[in-house]
Design a protein around this nucleic acid. Structure first.
Lengths: 331, 331
DNA sequence: ATGAAAGCGCTAACAA
DNA sequence: TTGTTAGCGCTTTCAT
């Protein structure tokens, strides 16, 4: 029923090895026979079976990407960066969302390894020893993207989250000389912890004793911003500014303020993080830490190709630059 | 180096057939031997090779998803719907963005077929005869999601785009008795054409002769909304309302209006389409056509599993319900 | 309940 | 330049 390399060989009066050669662009084929083979391939509608090829060659030209949530605008942007470079290098991607659930992450890694992917790009929450063990015993290279491995064992692409948070907080302190509030997600994931650290370091440097009432941790959702604002407004001395760990939450903070009659940035300043597209789609436009999201994916994928091809890599843990983009949500 | 089924068989003193049986949960294995095999699998750290399995069984438990752009918030939501159901049925997904480029779409289909996916979920722009031909000659089932096939040949999951656009336009006309402007993307893709048709039908029904100045077509981007508004403001008689084919563009329209000193909805009403998450993250909140994005993906994937398992399908072309959500961008 | 053996469709030495 | 021949690791009859 389905046409195999053998059918083509017979029909073209050559051996299957020759057919394989022309399919794989091996130069050691006489132009005449190449033409002949190509013609019968066309005629028979032959389509090489990548699974058989994968079994014989031990290469699938497929990589696995494990991502917290593909419907999250930050990660889908990152995924696009991965994909574009993967396409460039002729790789396909098996994409799976983990919801940052450890068991699911581990299981996904296992599944991808079973499927014989040539490499894995991992984006996740907390990197545990178990993760590192899996990665180290993996038969194929693994690269982390926007995911912090405290031991720096696994190759990775990140920005300096601690520093970025420090700088943002610092800039807020300079203007108000008061403690900016902190809104974000639970610090059980390393990146969140880094941001919190940066925030705390900035406070400490200005001799500000952290007021716990000014720190609100929730989920990654927009609603966390709304909720945080509700809490802050109950305080008799509400914060003059807020540093938010994620833009989407920052939008919630802005709207939470506006919906309660406050004006941003006059009554309260808001500083976000990530620079997702929405940051410029809100009024006032969001001041935020610009993270090269697409590039993190792209560079991560490029790094992975280097490992897969046994190329020399000069920098195992890549740190991409970030910057602050001051827009209208801060004075 | 890598542990194979043969190693396990030897170590457990059984045949590889038996190992295969326990791995695949075949009940015809004595509990004792099953236990023994399981133990040596654990001990040896055996991991079944899905590629070899795929070659032998002609099933890869992998499906291909072709999507216009994974970084687009609408499609990433849709993708999540696909993924959740796929996971439920133990399928992995090879995900690729096509940018609605016909050649890329066709090439992607071919690549996925080479990789022996068990089925394809296709989201795209214009479905041409060439597409249909490819789908029909495909060895595996294909389902379209949020993609209109004028011939209704290929199984699909959609909403009634024409009707939805008609209703939205109608509701705008009722309030102003004037022609609402139309902002959207080029109508070379079928879904866009359907929306345009619905808009035009509503005008016709109210005996409104379409004024071409009130129709602006650009890209899918936010900036299209900004640009459209610039154009409308040059008109001496600017529109009192706008029907926008995509929410993201609608946000651009709102901001384009606001940035020029207009108030929404007082000075101009805006009606969007899709109900992406951002719709509620803007002020005023966007009135829009609610499309069950996630469900389109989920139902599409479910439909695909039915075809892959040769189950009975009662409805080849599924039309999901839509509704209008009136928020604050309309009076 | 278990084993033997023949493929699945291809790549990659090795010969010629 | 071309062909021959082993596998790649597994599933799946068919026996036993």
């Amino acid at each position: 029923m389905t046409v195999t390399i053998y059918d083509v060989a017979r029909e073209a009066n050559v051996s299957m090895a020759t057919v394989s050669r022309v399919v794989n662009g091996n130069p050691n084929v006489k132009p005449t026979t190449r033409k002949k083979v190509l013609a019968t391939i066309e005629q028979l509608g032959y389509r090489p079976n990548a699974v058989a090829r994968g079994l014989a060659s031990k290469k699938t030209t497929t990589i696995g990407a494990i991502i917290p949530d593909i419907s999250n605008i930050f990660f889908s942007e990152l995924a696009r960066g991965i994909e574009d470079i993967a396409t460039m290098y002729k790789y396909n991607i098996i994409l799976s969302s983990s919801d940052q659930n450890k068991d699911k992450e581990l299981e996904l890694i296992n599944t991808m390894l079973e499927k014989q992917v040539d490499g894995i790009l991992f984006m996740g929450g907390n990197i545990t020893e178990e993760h590192i063990h899996q990665f180290q015993t993996s038969s194929v290279p693994v690269v982390l993207a926007s995911t912090y491995d405290p031991t720096d064992t696994i190759p990775s692409v990140n920005i300096d989250y601690e520093l970025a948070a420090y700088e943002a907080t610092k800039s807020l302190i300079e203007k108000t000389n008061k403690q900016p509030a902190l809104v974000g997600s639970e610090s059980d994931t390393s990146v969140n912890a880094l941001k919190t650290n940066g925030y705390l370091r900035a406070l400490k440097e200005s001799d500000i004793e952290p007021n716990e009432d000014y720190i609100y941790k929730g989920s990654y959702a927009y609603s966390t911003g709304i909720d945080a604002m509700e809490e802050f407004l109950k305080l008799e001395d509400r914060p003059a500014s807020v540093f938010v760990m994620y833009d989407e939450i920052a939008l919630g903070v802005i709207h939470g303020a506006q919906d309660n009659g406050l004006t941003v940035p006059e009554d309260i300043e808001v500083f976000g993080f990530d620079n997702i597209r929405l940051a410029s789609m809100v009024r006032p436009k969001l001041t935020t830490v610009v993270q090269p999201t697409y590039d993190i994916g792209a560079v991560g994928m490029r790094l992975l190709t280097k490992y897969m091809n046994d190329e020399e890599v000069e920098e195992k843990n890549v740190v991409l630059p970030h910057r602050m983009e001051f827009r209208d949500s801060t004075k």
